[in-house]
Design a binder for these strands. Structure first.
Length: 157
DNA sequence: TCCATGCGCGGCC
DNA sequence: GGCCGCGCAGTGG
């Protein structure tokens, strides 16, 4: 399947998905486990925030998405410095191309209390930087903003 | 607790 | 360019 950027079918921001498998079946986010979908050549199509990377920040008008790697699965802390691997390169490519990235976030569904994946909509990678994270090792930080805010926020802000 | 599964990359025709 | 094998991952049964 060729890469697909932008919305998928008739799915809208706010729609929820029960599992990573469902995200894959619908084409929202194809990798079964990885958080970044895409390649270093075409850019990132979609990302998942699963509340497992300690340096992530999610707010109303901005997302700081930590790059892939360096994480100890047992402790959840960053233990080795991240490198510019293919998945991180994919997000850098997105910053270059300006292609929209689908953002999906794992949240607790009010009511059922179940963990679901919520489609947050299309974002753009405005910038990225490399620096020390909370645990003191190097991490990539990708700054994404909702597509509708990206246009009016280009060089200024 | 353990491990399957799908994908991108790189090596090799 | 196409095929194959490897390594790895923001899971999940």
């Amino acid at each position: 399947m060729p890469p697909h950027f932008g919305h998928i079918g008739s799915y809208l921001p706010g729609d929820t998905f029960a599992s990573r498998l469902e995200l894959r079946l619908t084409g929202m986010h194809r990798p079964v486990r990885a958080g970044i979908a895409g390649s270093q050549h075409t850019g990132a199509e979609s990302i998942v925030l699963s509340q497992v990377y300690e340096d992530d920040v999610f707010s109303e008008d901005e997302i700081i998405y930590t790059g892939q790697g360096g994480r100890d699965p047992k402790t959840g802390h960053q233990v080795t410095s991240q490198v510019a691997n293919d998945r991180n390169l994919a997000l850098m490519k997105s910053q270059e191309t300006g292609q929209p990235v689908r953002v999906i976030r794992k949240v607790t569904d009010e009511g059922s209390g179940a963990q679901v994946f919520r489609y947050e909509g299309l974002y753009r990678v405005l910038s990225y930087e490399y620096g020390l994270g909370k645990s003191g090792v190097g991490v990539w930080r990708f700054r994404l903003v909702p597509e509708r805010l990206a246009a009016g926020q280009l060089p200024t802000a």
